[in-house]
């Protein structure tokens, strides 16, 4: 302690900053922060998409990948245009959209109701939750023959397949969302004597909405995946039936055109949910 020299401060004439007299060589402190904070970059999605397209074009155009394995982007586009022109795309699209909308709405509303009861009542949690957990991993495609036996080969079995696939993830999303609603808010509402129904509609449901929307994001994708499975059985029209038939007929250009439409549909639905998140979850 005793041999520590007192530090003399001197005012630097130009910058006016205090500078340590006889300071040793300066070393800048290396930057160690940053990262872990992904942002949305505006044109990157488009550029990525174009790059993938370009890669596809190059490998098929120069014959690096055979025509049999992967048709050229131009052929797929031509198949798409042909489907638009002869009206078959519209017919198939409408048939599928109906099944998707019905199946998703049914599965999601049942899922939300069951998820809410599981989230709110001990008896439901103990009885229904293990059941739902057991139902979730069942490959719905494997149950298709049973669906056909129970519900026939008409629209009902197709809608049911989609609804069944949507149901479990929505149940799990909903009760998870209900579990995550701040108990303090519920106690607060109770302390003001707010009726149970109002607590449900104004506290629990809006509080579970983030989880519901992310559940919707997953379940719409599952619905589209199951659409093809649902349309395996006795579907004359539909995007899934079209893709299946194109595969069976080895019309790979039409197959990929159908896949493009399906993934475009998935992308659009995900955009809609993203919009809903920004619109309804602005309070976050």
């Amino acid at each position: 302690m005793a041999d520590l020299k007192p530090v003399t401060l001197r005012v630097a004439p130009i910058l006016g900053e205090p500078v340590l007299a006889a300071a040793p060589a300066r070393q800048s402190v290396p930057f160690r922060g940053g990262g872990f904070a992904p942002r949305r970059l505006r044109f990157v999605p488009l550029v990525t998409f174009l790059l993938v397209l370009a890669l596809w074009w190059v490998v098929t155009h120069y014959g690096w990948v055979s025509d049999l394995s992967l048709p050229k982007p131009g052929e797929v586009f031509a198949a798409l245009v042909a489907m638009v022109k002869d009206g078959s795309l519209a017919v198939n699209f409408m048939a599928s959209i109906r099944r998707l909308a019905l199946g998703w709405a049914l599965g999601a509303s049942f899922g939300v109701v069951i998820g809410l009861t599981i989230g709110l009542f001990s008896l439901a949690r103990s009885s229904a939750l293990p059941l739902v957990s057991a139902l979730f991993p069942i490959p719905k495609i494997a149950l298709l023959p049973l669906f056909v036996l129970w519900l026939g080969i008409g629209e009902v079995s197709k809608v049911a397949t989609i609804a069944f696939g949507v149901f479990s993830p929505m149940v799990i999303a909903t009760f998870g969302g209900v579990d995550n609603v701040d108990r303090g808010l519920i106690r607060m509402a109770q302390s003001f004597g707010v009726p149970r129904w109002t607590i449900l509609t104004r506290i629990i449901l809006p509080g579970a909405l983030p989880a519901l929307l992310s559940g919707a994001r997953i379940s719409t994708s599952i619905a589209i995946i199951l659409l093809t499975a649902a349309e395996m059985i006795g579907a004359q029209h539909g995007l899934g039936a079209m893709v299946l038939a194109a595969g069976n007929l080895m019309q790979t250009d039409q197959l990929l055109a159908g896949v493009v439409v399906l993934s475009g549909l998935g992308f659009t639905l995900s955009q809609i949910i993203g919009w809903a998140e920004r619109r309804f979850l602005h309070w976050r």
Binding site: V148, L149, I153
Partner: peptide, 21 residues
Amino acid sequence: NNIKPLQGIASMVAAIKTSQV
């Protein structure tokens, strides 16, 4: 005619048995 693709012989048998086609 309503052509119904059922993917396999087994479902075709089931469909004709139950008069679904």
